[in-house]
């Protein structure tokens, strides 16, 4: 049988660890701030999450296994999608995004499932005899999708992807072209944003009543950026606005759709 260490020695050891710990403490706090400022360790694991994911998963998440727990819940959400269990999917997406708030993919796909798939399912739900209620239910899912994107943006304000998705949702699902234009414009202003986002912002502006002048200026500015932005839709809309806004002919752009560099498409196999 093993003999014990002198308890006084253990007490001294604890005391020593306490003193060393108090010296390390400011460093730990500084490192925590450094991590947070670099957007690390930002997930909030609270009691609400514990109720949603269960105790075992919550303990696993607390023990440093947030990402694998989120991955497993995501697979469950996929299984729920195959059974079109939209309510369950929403709850699982809530948990996944709480566990991994910095994964854009989770916010984006959660919003897409809600605002596109769940909405379409609600509109085709023949168990609901009233058209009004079907529309209402569809609207509810679109709002859930928007909510995912807005919270995702709050957690990842420096990423263009979710702004782009918000623009798409506002434009195609809510027919709010002004909001869509603003979201695309914001997305375009962020680092690594693809060039087409500026065009999307201009197109959405062009569909917004009362923002014709702004739309024209955006389209014109893009046109002057060079050949890469002179795609057929842009040139066509620019000509529409030149006529609509009564721009003098000498100020019209000297271009036509055919001047756009044509990329031959590969034939489908």
């Amino acid at each position: 049988m093993m003999r014990c260490v002198n308890p006084l020695r253990v007490l001294f050891a604890i005391l020593f660890l306490g003193i060393a710990g108090s010296l390390i403490l400011p460093w730990q706090i500084e490192l925590q701030h450094l991590d947070r400022s670099a957007h690390f360790r930002s997930a909030t694991l609270d009691l609400g999450l514990r109720e949603r994911v269960g105790q075992a998963a919550f303990i696993a998440a607390l023990s440093g296994f947030r990402a694998p727990v989120a991955a497993l819940l995501w697979i469950s959400a996929h299984a729920a999608w195959e059974k079109t269990e939209w309510g369950k999917m929403d709850a699982l997406f809530e948990s996944v995004t709480t566990l991994q708030p910095r994964v854009l993919l989770y916010w984006d796909i959660a919003a897409w499932h809600m605002a596109w798939n769940a909405r379409a399912s609600a509109l085709q739900d023949l168990t609901q005899p009233s058209e009004v209620l079907r529309e209402r239910s569809a609207g509810h899912y679109v709002a859930l999708g928007r909510n995912f994107l807005e919270r995702g943006i709050k957690n990842n304000p420096d990423q263009y992807l979710l702004y782009e998705s918000l623009g798409r949702l506002a434009g195609t699902r809510e027919s709010d072209h002004g909001a869509a234009a603003d979201a695309y414009a914001k997305a375009a202003s962020l680092t690594n944003a693809p060039a087409y986002l500026k065009r999307l912002a201009a197109y959405e502006s062009s569909l917004t009543p009362g923002r014709e002048r702004e739309a024209y200026e955006r389209l014109l500015s893009l046109y002057h950026e060079g050949a890469q932005q002179r795609v057929p839709t842009l040139v066509t809309r620019l000509h529409e606005f030149e006529q609509k806004l009564g721009i003098p002919k000498d100020q019209w752009v000297n271009d036509s759709v055919s001047s756009y560099p044509f990329y031959p498409l590969k034939a489908p196999k």
Partner: peptide, 20 residues
């Protein structure tokens, strides 16, 4: 807080796989 290490400081891989 003083005797034990902050092991959460080492759980950065969750955010690293998110592409950060």
């Amino acid at each position: 807080a003083l005797v034990f290490p902050d092991l959460q400081a080492f759980n950065l891989s969750d955010d690293i796989v998110a592409g950060k």
